[in-house]
Each structure stands twice: as structure tokens, then as C-alpha cells.
């Protein structure tokens, strides 16, 4: 009985520690992978925007401001270095693109143009993909953060220095802006 107890004490805690550690590593890799998925979609958007701007420029003489906003937001997003900067600038770009897509709706000549329609669909799907990738990433981050903070997994997390991943979202002050609602995706 004593030997059994000793074996129990010697085997169970290390086995649990290995399992908990592996689980945390898996979650961290999943979070990283989800972030790369967002990155792929962001790159797709950065490549698409110049095409759209070139096509719609001639038709939208009175909407230069909207176009400039998009171009500026894209430049800002491209130059962002830190994770936080990137998150904030990309959300700004999303809003600018949503504005542009809404404006296109008001131009019947633009809507009749096959090229514009194709680009509009491409941009709409890219915006959706970014939103969904972001949602999926944030779900995984929530899972990871919960795992790090709950007992007894938090012991392993602190021993091996697992840091909570950041959510892909705007700051509180950004959210206070009137257009910060990401749910208003283009239809």
C-alpha cells in the first residue's frame, strides 16, 4: 500500500505537469497560427486597395476625401511595427474601406462597371475574412488566457513564463470614436 502511495505521488504530478505544459504549448501555437491567418488576409487587403482606388478614381471626383482616407489608412497600416499599432491601424483601415464601399453604392455608373463590381466583391470578401479571422483569433486568445489563469494550470504557466496573448482589438479611446463598431461590415 505504501509503495502504491509513493508511486502515485511520484507519477501523477509529473504526468499532469507534462500534459498541462503540452496543452499550453498547443494553445500558444494555435494562437500564433491564427495570427498568421489574419496577416495573410491583411496582406491581401493591402494589395487590393491600390487596384480599387485606381479603378474608381475617375468616377469619383467629388469623393476625393474618402479615397485619400483609404490611402492614408493603408500607408499607416503598412508602416505599423508593433502588434498594438498594427491592430489599431488595421481597424482604422477597415473603417475607411467600409466608408468607400458605402460610397460606391451611391454611384450607379460605378455599380454598373464589371471591374468595379468584381473588385468590390473581392474587397467585401477580404473584409469579411479579416473580421472572421480576427474573431477566431480572439476566441483562441480567450481560451489561452483562461488556461493560463485557472488553477492549477497557472502554476505551470508561471514556471515556464507563458505570457497572455494580446487581443486583436482597438483601444478604449478608439472604441469611443463614432465609427469604431466593427459589426458594421459591408453587406
Amino acid at each position: 500500500m505504501t509503495w502504491f502511495l509513493i508511486a502515485f505521488i511520484v507519477v501523477i504530478p509529473p504526468a499532469w505537469a507534462v500534459l498541462a505544459y503540452n496543452r499550453l504549448i498547443t494553445l500558444r501555437v494555435e494562437v500564433k497560427n491564427a495570427w498568421h491567418q489574419i496577416d495573410v488576409q491583411l496582406k491581401r487587403r493591402h494589395d487590393l486597395i491600390p487596384n480599387l482606388v485606381t479603378v474608381v478614381k475617375g468616377y469619383m471626383d467629388f469623393e476625393q476625401e474618402t479615397l485619400e482616407k483609404v490611402v492614408k489608412a493603408r500607408t499607416k497600416a503598412l508602416s505599423a511595427s508593433s502588434f498594438h499599432e498594427k491592430a489599431v491601424s488595421e481597424i482604422g483601415l477597415s473603417q475607411a474601406v467600409s466608408g468607400l464601399l458605402a460610397v460606391i453604392e451611391n454611384y450607379p455608373t460605378l455599380k454598373a462597371n464589371e471591374n468595379v463590381l468584381r473588385l468590390q466583391e473581392e474587397l467585401t470578401t477580404t473584409e469579411n475574412r479579416i473580421a472572421f479571422a480576427r474573431q477566431f483569433y480572439n476566441d483562441l486568445v480567450a481560451n489561452f488566457r483562461t488556461k493560463i489563469e485557472v488553477f492549477p494550470d497557472n502554476i505551470i504557466a508561471s514556471v515556464f513564463h507563458f505570457r497572455p496573448a494580446e487581443y486583436f482589438s482597438a483601444d478604449a479611446e478608439d472604441r469611443a470614436l463614432p465609427k469604431a463598431d466593427m459589426s458594421a461590415r459591408p453587406k
Binding site: 466583391e121 467585401t124 469579411n128 472572421f132 479571422a133 474573431q135
Partner: peptide, 19 residues
């Protein structure tokens, strides 16, 4: 076909939403 292309795009979006 533009409508079918839209359907293909939505399916791709679904893949992203479901990881």
C-alpha cells in the same frame, strides 16, 4: 458567374470563421 463566385467566397470565409 458573379453570383457563383460570391458563393465560393462565402465558403472560403466560412473556413476562416471555423478555423
Amino acid at each position: 458567374d458573379s453570383l457563383h463566385m460570391q458563393l465560393i467566397n462565402i465558403t472560403k470565409e466560412l473556413h476562416i470563421a471555423t478555423g
